[in-house]
Design a binder for these strands. Structure first.
Length: 171
DNA sequence: TGCACGATCTCG
DNA sequence: GAGATCGTGCAT
C-alpha cells in the first residue's frame, strides 16, 4: 500500500484519529529491517481551545510543531520515562495532533513509544519523507468504538467528556 | 532558580 | 496504592 499523503494529514484531528484506525505504521530500524504495525487505538487533541491539548498553553518550544502543517511527528516525554507518539494534523497554525495509543496487541501510549523506540530526535520528523517512520494506507475501518480520552481529568467537564478516543474493534 | 506535576506503567 | 524519573510551564 502507498504512504498516506499530505491531504490525509491536513484534515481535522478528530477525522484523522478515526481514519488512522487500521492504517499501517511502519518503523524502519537502524539495521535496515522494517516492522509493520496496524494502528488500533488513537486519541484526538484539537486546538488551543481544547483544554486537554498541550496547545491550550499556547505556542511554546514543546507545542511549536503542532502549529505546522499536518504530517509531522510530535513526541514528548511524560512522567520522565515514556515518549508519547503523536501525529500532527490540520493546516498550518491549527495546533492539533493525534496520539497513537495502540498498535496491534500493544495497547497503551507509553508502551507504543517504548516498542517503537521513540525519543527526542523524532520530534518534528516528517512522515512523508522520513526513512525511519511513516504510515501506509489500508482499507477503511467501519467497526470501531469511541470513548472519552484518558488521563485528562484536569481539562474540565466539556473537554474531558469528548468522545475523541477511537478504538478498532478487535475480535 | 525553584517547584509541582504530567495525554504512564509496573510491581506488590 | 506507591514509586520511578525528568522536561516543561509558571511562579518566585
Amino acid at each position: 500500500m502507498k504512504k498516506l499523503g499530505i491531504e490525509f494529514y491536513r484534515q481535522d484531528a478528530v477525522i484523522v484519529a478515526e481514519k488512522l484506525l487500521g492504517k499501517i505504521l511502519v518503523r524502519r530500524w537502524d539495521d535496515g529491517s522494517e516492522t509493520r504495525y496496524r494502528i488500533t487505538e488513537t486519541e484526538a487533541y484539537l486546538g488551543e481551545e481544547d483544554k486537554a491539548c498541550h496547545a491550550s498553553k499556547g505556542r511554546t518550544p514543546r507545542t511549536e510543531i503542532m502549529y505546522s502543517e499536518g504530517g509531522k511527528v510530535y513526541v514528548y516525554l511524560i512522567y520522565g520515562m515514556y515518549w508519547m507518539l503523536n501525529v500532527v494534523t490540520g493546516n498550518e497554525n491549527q495546533p492539533q495532533a493525534v496520539l497513537i495509543r495502540g498498535i496491534d496487541k500493544i495497547i497503551g501510549s507509553g508502551k507504543v513509544g517504548r516498542e517503537l523506540k521513540m525519543y527526542k530526535s523524532f520530534y518534528g520528523e516528517d512522515l512523508l519523507s522520513s526513512d525511519r517512520i511513516w504510515i501506509e494506507d489500508a482499507p477503511e475501518i467501519r467497526e470501531f468504538t469511541t470513548a472519552a480520552r484518558i488521563g485528562i481529568d484536569y481539562a474540565g467537564d466539556e473537554w474531558r467528556d469528548k468522545p475523541w478516543r477511537f478504538m478498532l474493534v478487535l475480535i
